[in-house]
């Protein structure tokens, strides 16, 4: 089970509270986690990554195990602790704006 922590506004859009738990088939990567997240919560499509290019939105970052994974390949394997559900995959909004 993969654990995902969404920022406040996306929890509202998805109508969830707390962490989201996802089943991910195959290798656990940013792409496969986000694919599973968007499949389960279709209203999140376009809010984390572009609909077409799947590029991460500029003011969002991805963290896990105290590392910033935002610039990793979307197909790179996420840490074992994320794949095993020990640690969550964090989607974080930039601290910016007013």
């Amino acid at each position: 089970m993969i654990r995902v922590v969404l920022p406040y506004h996306l929890r509202t859009i998805a109508s969830v509270s707390g962490e989201v738990e996802l089943n991910v088939e195959g290798p656990v990567t940013q792409r496969s986690v986000l694919d599973a997240l968007e499949a389960r919560y279709p209203t999140l499509r376009g809010t984390i990554r572009d609909h077409t290019t799947h590029q991460r939105r500029a003011f969002l970052r991805f963290f896990a195990c105290e590392d910033d994974l935002s610039h990793e390949s979307p197909d790179a394997l996420l840490p074992d602790a994320v794949a095993s559900g020990t640690e969550p995959f964090l989607i974080v909004g930039a601290i910016a704006g007013g």
Partner: peptide, 8 residues
């Protein structure tokens, strides 16, 4: 809309 999360 939002600068962080785009268009809804």
């Amino acid at each position: 809309s939002s600068g962080w999360f785009g268009q809804m």
